[in-house]
């Protein structure tokens, strides 16, 4: 074995080997994840009181722009991060589901506040007991309303998970059908 082998061998295995092909895909994913992590386009689905803290989070003091996630896209089709901010009532549920369905893969969902996560203390006829009942959620933020720091923490958590590929949106099952 000469110099030639030392150079060639790793190259050959990476391209041709079965298991190593998966390795190549992972690396692409990582690259994509790294890229996506810093260019989240958000769709704010703000309904209630938490929206005030959401505004505060985007406003000068807390400055969401530091994380590259401040650009709101006012069409779900162009965004990949859905912030569900506030109480989702039963009447609102089909709308939320539809908006989630309109977003393109890959997509992530953050439930902002107790109401979005579990229904909060509105445990009654009018509210959905947690949006994970209707769409998949990646990160839940507790708090009524959460402080902006908490929300930024959640965003960083999501970014980390996007980068290492552990956050994955799943196709939604509504009424037993794939939407």
């Amino acid at each position: 074995m000469g110099v030639e082998d030392r150079i060639r061998l790793p190259v050959r295995t990476e391209v041709l080997g079965g298991a190593e092909a998966a390795f190549a895909t992972t690396r692409l994913d990582q690259l994509l994840g790294w890229a996506r992590k810093y260019s989240l386009f958000m769709y704010p689905f703000a309904t209630a009181c938490c929206g005030m803290e959401f505004m505060a989070m985007s406003a000068p003091k807390y400055d969401l722009a530091r994380f590259g996630a401040e650009a709101p896209r006012f069409s779900p089709r162009q965004s990949d991060l859905l912030w569900v901010v506030g109480t989702i009532s039963q009447r609102q549920a089909p709308v939320l589901q539809r908006i989630y369905g309109q977003m393109c893969e890959p997509k992530w969902v953050i439930a902002f506040g107790t109401c979005a996560s579990t229904g909060g203390f509105y445990d009654n006829y009018a509210t959905v007991p947690g949006i994970d009942r209707i769409i998949p959620v990646d990160v839940f933020i507790p708090g009524c309303p959460p402080r902006p720091e908490q929300a930024l923490d959640a965003l960083m958590l999501l970014m980390k998970r996007i980068a290492d590929g552990s956050a994955r949106g799943e196709p939604i099952l509504a009424n037993g059908q794939v939407v």
Partner: peptide, 10 residues
């Protein structure tokens, strides 16, 4: 009505 949360009932 999209944010009716049942204040009176609660």
């Amino acid at each position: 009505g999209y944010l009716h949360r049942g204040f009176d009932k609660m």
